[in-house]
Design a protein around this nucleic acid. Structure first.
Lengths: 194, 194
DNA sequence: GGTTGTTTTCAGAAAATACTGAAAACCGTG
DNA sequence: CACGGTTTTCAGTATTTTCTGAAAACAACC
């Protein structure tokens, strides 16, 4: 991060960028990609590649690739400003939309392939015909995994993916009593700057 | 993986080890650690360090560290065999217990620190006193994140962590109609063979 | 306390990942 | 279709992460 201005605003942003970057890398997302997202989200502005390069002190190539990935993930959008040839990028500002996109994407990229593998494995060990006690046990374990991951897939699809509502409702529903204070998460972040 | 025996059982195991290892690394867990876990889970046996080294073709140091980490995560247990000085390791076989341990641990390691950071950031930007429109918007975004992550924390704690039941029930509850075929996930993995 | 079998640690090596920068591709314009 | 501004690509390099192996620490035993 470039800025060392003692502006508390900027400091808060930098801190957030760092924290989000760390979280990202703990979950198998490249630190920089997470940082770019953090920057776009926390500023809420439409930034161009050069803005991002400057603020994060990264190369053009890196910025370009990270942005493309974020766009693929569906949590950052391309925009333009009239009379300006450059491309600008904005982060999806609604938190729930963002959460949905992330979860949906990870499901698709990592869970679904796993389920596919489990199916194949099941076939391999089932087809073998033999059935000692050990093989039975093995098959049972695979079945269990298939079951749990298919369940996860189903839940995610129902609550995160399709129509739109879902997670919020579920969350509310599952969380009966008080306990939360000041927020207003319904509409999510809002602020659609022009 | 060492074994290239054309034994279909072994092949299925190897495939599972590979698939689980990949999934692990996609989620920020070292591939080897996930593979060790996969091996212990899928065989269901109590294996000693040398077994694991041999089967996975890894060094003693690596095996030792991975095992320790798995034990820390609470998804692998140390055992002993009478008259044998070596330590043996078994994977938790109940899938729900395992899932709970994993989620609980990740919450603790990655979500809680993030929430802490968000709180600090909130303080930084709130304390600054100023309140232009931009700052308001910034604060609102941080609030939203705090809200969503605290909600996640709460849900996870309620459904995954403490007493024991929870996820299963929730899962069932949230999944009203038919649609799933052959499995029997109710009791969870079960199979405590003697 | 010495011996032996076993596990842990950790500095350095190897492998995997991410990043850079410059060249190539793109693209609207004149 | 040549030109300036802009984005993408990718070979090479740098950084980070993971792994190894041998030495040190343990621990049961005699």
């Amino acid at each position: 991060m470039a800025s060392n201005s003692n502006n508390p605003m900027t400091e808060a942003e930098d801190r957030f960028v760092t924290a989000w970057g760390q979280m990202g890398s703990a979950w198998g997302i490249s630190r920089t990609m997470a940082e770019v997202h953090a920057l776009l989200y926390i500023t809420g502005d439409a930034l161009c590649t050069d803005d991002i390069m400057a603020r994060l002190e990264i190369s053009r190539g890196n910025a370009s690739m990270s942005l493309r990935a974020l766009v693929d993930w569906g949590i950052v959008l391309r925009t333009h400003k009239r009379g300006d040839r450059k491309e600008y990028f904005v982060a999806e500002q609604d938190i729930w939309t963002m959460a949905r996109a992330i979860v949906r994407e990870r499901l698709k990229r990592e869970v679904e392939p796993l389920i596919a593998s489990l199916h194949e494995i099941r076939d391999v060990s089932t087809k073998s015909g033999a059935d000692s006690e050990a093989i039975e046990a093995h098959n049972a374990r695979i079945e269990n995994l298939v079951a749990i991951f298919e369940l996860i897939e189903l839940l995610v699809q129902r609550f995160v993916s399709p129509s739109g509502e879902g997670l919020e409702a579920a969350a509310m529903l599952l969380q009966p009593s008080g306990q939360r204070g000041s927020e207003r998460e319904g509409d999510g972040a809002g602020e659609d700057r022009p």
